Simulated scan of single mutants.
Amino acid sequence: MKVFLKEATVVMRMSKNETEALSLDGWILGFVKFINNRNVKATGFEEKIIKMKSMIFEDIAYMLVLYTSYIPRVSKAPREGVDSFHLIKKDGSWKIVSILNEIPSADRPKPTILEN
């Protein structure tokens, strides 16, 4: 995947009390497993960006993204999530260094910077 550094890391919220740090290959394998286990080929999957905030300083960048995701015909309603992307400009193009994921809840509200 050309948009990622080969050493990129993805940290995903796996449950209310657990996160998991994955290599890029591990993250891709996990997404393939999600597609197969949830029968996403038949049901579909939608992820929609609601709001983004970014900061760029020379060759580094940070992007905070509020999104909703859901599986049509399975999910009750779209669920909000927050991704934090960290990038570096390398050889003239931006590369993802890491993605950190969090799922807002009553005890972990979304950042106020992403409020409407």
Rank of each mutant, 00 (worst) to 15 (best):
K16H: 00
V10N: 07
F57Y: 03
A21V: 02
T19N: 00
P72M: 11
L22T: 04
D25T: 13
I35W: 02
G26T: 13
K48R: 13
D59M: 11
H86M: 06
L100F: 12
F31V: 12
H86F: 07
S69H: 09
E102D: 09
A42G: 06
M55G: 05
K33H: 10
P72R: 12
S15R: 00
V82I: 14
K6E: 12
V10D: 04
F34G: 02
F4Q: 07
T43L: 05
D107R: 07
F57D: 15
P78V: 04
P111L: 15
V74D: 10
A21K: 09
N37Q: 08
Y70M: 09
L66F: 15
E18N: 01
R108W: 01
D59K: 14
Y62A: 11
T68F: 02
M12K: 09
I60R: 14
G92E: 10
Y67F: 15
T9C: 15
E20T: 04
N116G: 12
E18P: 00
S93W: 15
D91F: 06
E20W: 00
I71D: 01
M63I: 15
E47P: 07
K48I: 13
L29Q: 15
D83W: 07
T112D: 08
N101T: 06
K6G: 07
Y62H: 12
I35P: 02
T112G: 03
N37T: 05
I71L: 06
Y62T: 14
A21E: 01
I28P: 06
S23F: 09
E46D: 04
M1C: 08
L22G: 00
L5T: 08
F4L: 09
A42Y: 01
L5Q: 13
V65H: 12
K2D: 07
M14S: 05
K95L: 13
E80A: 05
S75G: 12
D25I: 12
G30A: 11
V40M: 03
D59F: 11
F34W: 14
S75P: 06
R79F: 02
W27N: 06
V3I: 11
G92M: 10
T112N: 13
V3R: 10
W94K: 11
K95I: 06
A77L: 14
K90D: 05
P109H: 08
G44V: 07
E46C: 08
L22C: 02
K95D: 09
E80T: 03
S105Q: 02
H86E: 03
T19Y: 02
H86R: 03
H86G: 03
V40R: 00
G92L: 08
E18Q: 06
F45M: 05
V97D: 10
M63S: 10
I56F: 10
G44T: 08
M1D: 14
G26S: 09
S84P: 00
I28G: 07
V32G: 01
I49Y: 09
